[in-house]
Design a protein around this nucleic acid. Sequence first.
DNA 1: TGCAAATCGG
DNA 2: CCGATTTGCA
Lengths: 266, 266
Amino acid sequence: MLELRLVQGSLLKKVLEAIKDLVNDANFDCSATGFSLQAMDSSHVALVALLLRSEGFEHYRCDRSISMGMNLGNMSKMLKCAGNDDIITIKADDGSDTVTFMFESPTQDKISDFEMKLMDIDSEHLGIPEAEYHAIVRMPSAEFARICKDLASIGDTVVISVTKEGVKFSTRGDIGTANIVLRQNTTVDKPEEATIIEMNEPVSLTFALRYMNSFTKATPLSNTVTISLSSELPVVVEYKIAEMGYVRFYLAPKIEEDEDETKPQV
Amino acid sequence: MLELRLVQGSLLKKVLEAIKDLVNDANFDCSATGFSLQAMDSSHVALVALLLRSEGFEHYRCDRSISMGMNLGNMSKMLKCAGNDDIITIKADDGSDTVTFMFESPTQDKISDFEMKLMDIDSEHLGIPEAEYHAIVRMPSAEFARICKDLASIGDTVVISVTKEGVKFSTRGDIGTANIVLRQNTTVDKPEEATIIEMNEPVSLTFALRYMNSFTKATPLSNTVTISLSSELPVVVEYKIAEMGYVRFYLAPKIEEDEDETKPQV
DNA sequence: TGCAAATCGG
DNA sequence: CCGATTTGCA
């Protein structure tokens, strides 16, 4: 028996908006710890990891660990039927091949329940090692989204370069080149507008903008985003979910070509 | 060496939105006087003239007159990457075949630079004589845009007729006819809502609405538009750019056919 | 039906 | 000034 009651149902709606374009089908893993998901995107290039800790739910009952395969498109369709301030409860009976989403309007005047068939999905659950990163950039998520969108109108890939002074996003395309530099700025009153750079050593990595722009679908989940970079390691783009956990996206850097002209230089 | 710093960068963004649909490629001419452009539209029917006077720039350095051929679509793409209250600087080195657009966010925390290849464009720079017009109508630009859009849903051409009493916009199409009359009104408190008619002699001219509706893309540049009419002269549709200059569109009238039914009468 | 532009509200 | 919503267009 599984029963997870989430008062801020809009969180779950946003989570699905954030990942459903990247991943079609995935197993949600439910244990005493929390509600989580780990899946490769459909082209097996990027990886999504979601965690919603049990403490973030108003009520969390999970008698035994269970893995539930869902079609995220269909799940998203159902969650769209929930109001933004509905309370959402996820329910599943032991051995059942369905999951039920229950939506309660704030006034309790409207109670909906949507039942969805589960799927069998084989998933290789990857252990993702905690790694040391050469540089970690924390910045406003809206700004990151804007930069990825702007650069995608010029080129296909972005070079992210971090130095102590700031972070530079560069691209190059048929019509020209673009460089966007953000200075470190911690002095603002509002911490969510700060750009903070923790750097152990300078790093410069190239990524496909197409994936970055998928990741930024998670922008509504958090005012800030954290980008963790190391040479030869996948970048981690993390959106924290207040009080509950995170959505993290992993993407391997493109191997740099030897011709200097193919990419902008630091 | 060229370096033009425009504090109100949104002006340049709006200028490109206003003209990029009409003109694909054009030479921007930069001299001590200012930054200007003159180009025929791609079907060689209408003419666009832009002037941004040097006094309107915060910093204006243009060592020697230079003509820079740009693809306006690509230039517009790059300017879309500037924030609406960014400061925009246009830079070009002598003899370089590229131009650089630099965008500074108001807080100076984000500095972007976009480099674009220049093109070789042959352009016949027409001297446009100052002419005496039979009638000059000044009216709210939004109202003019609305009229052109409305009339285009009925017919293909507009007859603009000016008398002392007012200005009439007429069209005729398969489904019927339309006449919109604006009375002269100078009495309003707000001068940008006035409709002012200076008339030396009555005039009635026919124009293709397709072009008029392209011209109205410049509406965001100014609250008012000035329409200058003379028989046998191209109409001038002018949007003033505060403190800096103008965008002017020129369009030859259609030669009137002899059948009375082909056009509405005054 | 889905996307983009315009408008309104925060 | 930006974001969200609504509306019109393809």
